[in-house]
Design a protein around this nucleic acid. Structure first.
Length: 649
RNA sequence: GGGCGAGUAGCUCAGCACGGAUAGAGCAUCAGCCUUCUAAGCUGAGGGUCAAGGGUUCAAAUCCCUUCCCGCCCGCCA
């Protein structure tokens, strides 16, 4: 017999037995909702209900007596996966599984379903867009941004495994002023070919250009304030200028050649600021030269991003340019539609969206879980000069996404919560209620460096590539130390998946709501509770299977009678449950936790009992089947968070 | 001022949606285990007023209220 979710079968059986006995022995009460919880340990069975505590009061009985009474009245003839039901702990009813049958069911199911074990398919498959990463194409992806693709890719993987049709989208924000700044610098340099990894190359141009331009702008502001005798503005300008000049000194030292070149060329322009604004407007208008230029720089940067993400097996199905929504009528259509709603008002020539009014008119506060005194600030849609803002364009983009999907999950930092809420309310306002309800902001907290703030304008950040390089390097040292006999080729290949796995795991493992303070120690952990630990465990199981001279057999499961063996079977049987929870509640970190706890249990077992040298042929066969199942499940789970499950390491 | 997220062992974090049996891991510290299948491993020890106070309940780290503390957001930036 095979089951997609062995534990669920047991749960259903317990549920039926319990329901029957209550309706039979307590016909006078209406059947309460039955809650069966996993027990803290094997001694209490596998599932328990605390129902008697609640019923006892109603029935004016003591919980233990009630539990006894119910247990005594249970019809045992229906037991299949249930071994026994006992009352315990002053009122609990504990259900014990029949391990002979349950081990057989679980291990055979894993063997049979193999890489599909755990992938319990949803009854309601949907088309889902997961938008993630979406780093602006201005400089290399840094460690503070890398948490996003790690979470987004894990989400996409689990949703797909659940049977949804998932599409991974990258939104390229190329319309902002920043894109024009980098393109301007790139143009001044004569559109050079990158001499290094292209995103790194573009990043340097961006940092230096934006610094020079900023100093220029501030000098003008200072002179103006001086002329007008505006003391406040003068102080402000001077203060900012001081800061930028210190940044300039830093950059000049770091990239002397580039800096000199850009200073010379940019200062040759009468008004660099105006050049950039002109470029920006030309781009929004879709003028050919501007289009070619900005797309060219952006593409360079994106090539670099693709290379970086490729290293950690993250890929995308669609690259969506923000500019495409501006050049086509999509953004203007959204504006036209919004204007027909009563939620738009004009303030000094600026179009605003009254988000709060939407919550009132459509009575959404309660529905969206917003506090009644949470007054949502209005959103500016169109500037006085007629140009649109980021969130305005995002509305058009979101509507477009819903033309291709039933559900949209945006993996975006939680500092954008308000903007994401306003976006959702705009959908409601435009009568896109279904879309609004299926728009999910998957928020995560920031990654910061200890001691100082990561600053892209100072070019002061740790790139994701550096982190990956360092991880692989340290993994290599580790392999060389632990397995000096391996060939160089093998060492490098192991170092690669260990290092990259460690980083992926570390960024997915923590609750997304918690901030992560980046330390090398944290990300490059090779010990318990890390990808390398789980990978090592998988390799260890693989090693046993490789050395086995007999086949795993699925006949003598009653021999798996050690407590640890039973616990292992339970952990394996619980994989589908955990997977469903991780998917339905969008908690990829559960997967990482699960791999660790399975690895933990297996390693304890490994140290306590021999497999290949067990007492009897039958026991060897049964334990081999257990090891095989563990190997399969570890592999399936690791795959969901994009970590390689190696045969050897 | 308002909103959102967080506060659990010296440090990093699970557990909280759905209340339940002695609050769990790892790091660090200390003591052990490689002539049996991979020691990136295992065993054991110490370490907790679950931020504080109140409330609901047979039962609260978990639910409700108040307070404190930290981060983020409240732009004609993205």
């Amino acid at each position: 017999m095979i089951a997609q979710n062995p534990f669920e079968l047991f749960r259903q059986e317990c549920q039926t037995v319990l329901t029957d006995v209550i309706t039979k022995t307590l016909p006078e009460i209406t059947l309460p909702p039955i809650s069966l919880k996993k027990t803290p340990n094997l001694d209490y069975g596998q599932l328990a209900t605390s129902l008697c505590f609640e019923l006892a009061k109603k029935l004016n009985q003591k919980p233990p007596a009630l539990a006894e009474h119910l247990v005594a009245s249970i019809d045992k003839s229906k037991f299949n996966l249930i071994d026994k039901v006992v009352s315990a702990g002053g009122g609990y009813i504990n259900f014990h599984v029949n391990f002979t049958k349950f081990s057989a069911l679980t291990l055979q199911s894993i063997k049979e379903l193999n890489n599909q074990y755990g992938s319990v398919k949803t009854d309601t498959p949907q088309k889902i867009i997961v938008e993630h990463t979406s780093v602006n194409p201005l400089h290399s992806i840094h460690i503070g941004q890398a948490r996003n693709p790690m979470l987004g890719d894990a989400l996409a993987r689990i949703l797909q495994y659940r049977g949804h049709q998932v599409s991974r989208h990258y939104y390229i924000d190329d319309v902002g002023r920043q894109s024009s700044v980098v393109a301007y610098g790139y143009l001044k340099l004569g559109r050079p070919k990158p001499t290094e990894k292209p995103d790194l190359f573009v990043g340097k141009i961006y940092t230096v250009t934006s610094c020079i331009v900023e100093i220029n702008r501030l000098k003008q502001a200072r002179d103006k304030a001086n002329a007008l005798h505006n003391a406040d503005d003068l102080v402000k300008a001077n203060k900012e200028l001081d800061e930028w000049i210190s940044i300039a000194a830093e950059l000049k030292e770091k990239y002397p050649v580039l800096f000199e070149m850009l200073v010379t060329k940019i200062n040759a322009d009468e008004n660099p600021e105006e050049e950039i604004n002109r470029l920006n407007r030309a781009y929004e208008d879709g003028q050919q030269a501007a289009k070619e230029l900005i797309r060219e720089v952006s593409d360079l940067c994106l090539d670099g991003f693709r290379a970086t993400m490729n290293r950690v097996s993250v890929t995308y199905d669609s690259w969506d340019w923000e500019s495409d929504f501006v050049w086509t009528p999509q953004v203007s259509e959204v504006m036209a539609k919004l204007k027909t709603t009563p939620f738009i008002f004009n303030e000094k020539g600026v179009l605003q969206f009254n988000a709060d009014q939407v919550t009132q008119v459509l009575d959404l506060k309660d529905k969206l879980g917003l506090s009644p005194n949470n007054e949502i600030p209005p959103l500016t849609l169109v500037r006085a000069d007629g140009t649109t803002l980021y969130t305005t364009r995002d509305i058009a983009y979101t509507i477009w996404k819903f033309q291709h999907a039933d559900k949209v999950i945006n993996v975006i930092g939680m500092e954008q919560s308000l903007a994401q809420l306003q976006l959702k309310l705009a959908l409601y306002a435009m009568n896109y209620g279904r879309e609004a309800e299926n728009l999910i902001h998957f928020a995560y907290n920031l990654v910061t460096l200890p001691g100082y703030k990561m600053s892209s304008r100072r070019g002061r950040y740790i790139t994701f590539d550096e982190v990956l390089d360092e991880a692989v390097k340290r993994a290599y040292e580790e392999v060389s130390k632990r397995s000096p006999m391996l060939s160089e080729e093998e060492k490098h290949s192991i170092a690669d998946f260990v290092g990259l796995g460690a980083v992926r795991y570390a960024l997915v493992d923590v609750d997304p709501g918690k901030p992560v303070i980046f330390t090398w120690e944290r990300v490059l952990n090779f010990e318990t509770n890390s990808a390398p630990y789980v990978q090592y465990t998988h390799a260890r199981a693989s090693s046993i299977l490789r050395k086995a001279t007999i086949e795993p057999q699925t006949t003598s499961f009653e021999l798996l009678s050690e407590r640890l063996e039973k616990e292992l079977v339970l952990v394996l049987a619980g994989f589908p449950d955990m997977f469903i929870e991780a998917t339905e509640y969008l908690k990829p970190n559960l997967i990482a936790d699960y791999t660790n706890s399975l690895a933990d249990k297996f390693n304890t077992f490994y140290n306590a009992y021999p497999v290949l040298k067990a007492d009897s042929q039958y026991l060897i066969e049964a334990r081999l089947a257990l090891v095989k199942a563990i190997q399969t499940v570890l592999k399936n789970a690791l795959n969901l968070i994009g970590v390689v499950a190696p045969e050897k390491m």
